[in-house]
């Protein structure tokens, strides 16, 4: 589904991603871990099409198409979803209104009829139940004054509404309380199918207890320096990153 080859990207001339290679197939869950500042959010942003990041080398094929050639909105319409590490506030725009605009643009791109208000509402109800989000939250301005956990839950609610093929969750677990973590993870699991894939960026094993990864990758200094199965995450939880950093740093010197 997703094939990243030798991806390099920089911000204002500073290279951040320095040769990422990653293959994600339909039905898979990939976890990306790594120390702060290693480039995890950057990778997510580059895949989603954020303009500040300049791709200097490499290619990304998503469902047979050149992802990097597409406008950010078209990537979304093709099925790429990014649950933001820091969701943005939009004053005066309710989640409901926002999502209706989004969903209908996505549907139009896919050649589907726009949903009328009644159908949209019933879809909302269904997805709200999935992530146990409160209706009241959705009639408020998007993310404005939401608690950290509420913002994250709202991201997954949006994901549920838009039914993406590739979901990238950037530290969705941070800010969630213990119950919310379980609820949100269950939501993500229910949305999984053999047609979709998920990339979870996280620092903690506890999320991976719920969303069990097929592969775990460690990102360090803009490269994937180690890949393994879910046991790798357990090992990291226990030992930290120092041993990997040492391995990498001594090899490059």
């Amino acid at each position: 589904m997703l094939s990243i080859k030798n991806l390099h990207a920089s911000v204002e001339g500073t290279p951040i991603l320095r040769g990422i290679n990653l293959e994600v197939k339909a039905g898979e869950v990939h976890a990306i871990m790594g120390p702060n500042g290693s480039g995890k959010s950057t990778l997510a942003s580059v895949l989603a099409g954020r303009e500040e990041y300049e791709v200097t080398e490499g290619e990304v094929i998503f469902k047979g198409k050149e992802l990097l050639e597409m406008a950010p909105e078209d990537r979304a319409r093709e099925g790429v979803f990014l649950a933001f590490q820091y969701p943005v506030e939009i004053p005066g725009v309710s989640s409901t209104n926002f999502l209706r605009t989004a969903l209908n643009q996505v549907r139009e791109y896919r050649g589907q009829e726009p949903l009328d208000a009644v159908k949209f509402l019933s879809l909302m109800k269904e997805k709200m139940a999935l992530v146990e989000i409160d209706q009241k939250l959705l009639s408020r301005s998007l993310n404005e004054g939401f608690s950290g956990g509420e913002k994250k839950r709202n991201e997954i609610f949006q994901m549920a509404m838009l039914e993406p093929t590739l979901s990238i969750l950037d530290e969705t677990d941070s800010g969630l309380d213990i119950d919310a973590l379980r609820i949100v993870s269950n939501g993500v699991n229910k949305l999984k199918s053999d047609q979709t894939a998920t990339i979870v960026v996280t620092h903690y094993q506890r999320l991976l207890d719920y969303i069990v990864p097929d592969y775990v990758h460690v990102l360090y200094k803009g490269r994937i320096v180690k890949s393994g199965t879910k046991e790798l995450a357990l090992e990291l939880e226990e030992k930290g990153y120092d041993w990997i950093k040492e391995e990498v740093d001594s090899a490059t010197v």
Binding site: A48, G49, P72, E73, L103, Q105
Partner: peptide, 23 residues
Amino acid sequence: QIFYCNQRGIATEDAVALIVNGY
């Protein structure tokens, strides 16, 4: 804000309209 809207499938023009009308 615009990128956030784009990422949900909303074209830039419509994102601006949405944000401005909210404002």
